[in-house]
Design a binder for these strands. Structure first.
Lengths: 146, 146
DNA sequence: TTTAAATAGGACTAATTTAGTCCTATTTAA
DNA sequence: TTAAATAGGACTAAATTAGTCCTATTTAAA
């Protein structure tokens, strides 16, 4: 069970957190990547994904950049995680039984299904309005802890 | 967030499940790997690990093999998962804050800690006595669903 | 209308992790 | 003594992650 979050998810979360805290204006990739210590071109990709999944809006051209597509309280951690990684699950059968000929007779299957629900519920409970007020990220440190 | 279980964990779980169902005797790697559709040499490594972490006992030599080191009801899914993958966590900071200079000021940190506890609790609740009685694995299918 | 600052997106590469294999040594029942 | 088993180190292959790089497009402002 490799349950570590990927950098991609970590970066996406940081990024949305930054946008939540600066939602009165448009922020460029350059600015976000600088503030949140994320490689610029990589962050650009991540923002494209967040854009496609309707979490952020983009403005092209000079003075362009990104902004949350809806209020921070309307964006859950689960939204961001699933935007980047797709469906959260320990294995595909927990999402769709049909993906696994085994599942019908697999003793462990119900456990993975439960676990998936636990995780999704927990991630659903946290929105970026809540997260944004907890404490500010420090800018000194280059990378996070996974 | 890559939360898929690894084959290693999947194999380990299947393997312990098999041993739980045949705990009246010693089973060889050859037998288990055949019955549970797991590559033999790889399974041998996994069993070595389960051995070191005190989940199974081994007997060497002719008629040797493996057996659970304690009753199936004394072995949780968490035991097996952590035996193979080490501490269950979304990131190292949730296990030990010191691993991340960031965590003290990281808004998301408390979420990962909560989530880790959710997952561990769920996995702790399932033991192999419970799992063993649910239903038998079918032998036809070659691999599981992650 | 040109320019420069920005996003969009495809194609590629490097690094890391996962999933194994292979070989030799050791143990032990028959 | 032999053959069937585990023990364990070293190695390799495949897959995934974590990026980079380049070109195209958009748009505010000079």
């Amino acid at each position: 069970m490799n349950m570590h979050i990927t950098r991609k998810v970590d970066y996406a979360v940081r990024c949305v957190l930054f946008l939540a805290r600066n939602n009165d204006r448009i922020s460029s990739v350059d600015e976000i990547s600088g503030e949140m210590s994320v490689p610029k071109t990589f962050l650009a990709k991540i923002l494209q994904r967040l854009m496609k999944t309707g979490i952020v809006n983009s403005t092209r051209g000079v003075k362009g950049g990104f902004q949350l597509a809806r209020g921070p309280q309307e964006i859950s951690l689960l939204n961001v995680v699933e935007a980047i990684d797709g469906a959260v699950a320990m294995n595909v059968c927990a999402v769709d039984k049909k993906m696994c000929g085994f599942s019908a007779s697999c003793s462990v299957h119900p456990v993975w299904v439960e676990l998936r629900e636990d995780i999704r519920n927990r991630l659903k409970r946290w929105d970026f309005a809540k997260l944004a007020v907890i404490k500010k990220y420090q800018r000194v440190i280059k990378r996070d802890c996974h």
